[in-house]
């Protein structure tokens, strides 16, 4: 439970590119072939280890539909990392990246680390966007880039962890003000309870017979 840092992520991108599947793969290690459209925002969390330090990721998976844009925007603030996802089998999701990026830059803090993700790399036969194009876009806009497959889990761990590494490095470099929660970073509790049973058993005794 104890962690050194807590990072907040936001996952953005067009509807149907696989944002929720990426999250599910990362947190649950499973793939759900049919996933309902996200309504509002989904939440996920997982612990990772970087440089021997426990880091907790709190991930906000947003709805891709235009109708939810104002809600999505309200989640940019206070995010340390963003996964900007497109679908390599659908050219238009790549074309919309500029809009997403503008949106993200406008509403987030300037230090937010953005990871560009070309998802569905398992569907090589239906590929519409070349890997080089993704790389070029990322290079041009100063993003990290990876192609992933939420289905086969390829690069999913790496995508989330590499983003965290980048944030971690920025912290080491002193770029992030870790005392400002608006940056999406929180220092872990100094003394996390090692034995959470203690207070419980104390109360449990008092409450034991109360149930019946």
């Amino acid at each position: 439970m104890s962690y050194a840092y807590l990072f907040k992520y936001i996952i953005i991108g067009d509807t149907g590119v696989g944002k929720s599947c990426l999250l599910l793969q990362f947190t649950d290690k499973r793939f759900q072939p049919v996933h309902d459209l996200t309504i509002g925002v989904e939440f996920g969390a997982r612990m990772i280890t970087i440089d021997g330090k426990q880091i907790k990721l709190q991930i906000w998976d947003t709805a891709g539909q235009e109708a939810f844009r104002s809600i999505t925007r309200s989640y940019y603030r206070g995010a340390a990392g963003a996964l900007l996802v497109y679908d390599i089998t659908r050219r238009e999701t790549f074309n919309h990246l500029t809009t997403w990026l503008e949106d993200a830059r406008q509403h987030s803090n300037s230090n937010m680390v953005i990871m560009l993700i070309g998802n569905k790399s398992d569907l090589e036969t239906r590929r519409e966007v070349k890997k080089e194009e993704g790389e070029a876009f990322a290079h041009e806009h100063g993003l990290i880039f990876m192609e992933t497959s939420a289905k086969t889990a390829a690069n999913v761990e790496e995508a989330f962890i590499n983003t965290a590494k980048e944030i971690y490095e920025k912290i080491q470099e002193g770029v992030f003000d870790i005392n400002n929660e608006a940056n999406g970073i929180k220092i872990g509790p100094q003394h996390s309870p090692t034995n959470p049973n203690l207070p419980q058993s104390g109360q449990g005794a008092g409450q034991g017979g109360g149930c019946c």
Partner: peptide, 20 residues
């Protein structure tokens, strides 16, 4: 928008990888 189901067609999200 959360309470407006009209914007949420039940069509699954992923168009391509949802082959199962």
């Amino acid at each position: 928008i959360i309470f407006n189901k009209e914007t949420k067609p039940s069509q699954g999200s992923g168009s391509s990888s949802s082959v199962c």
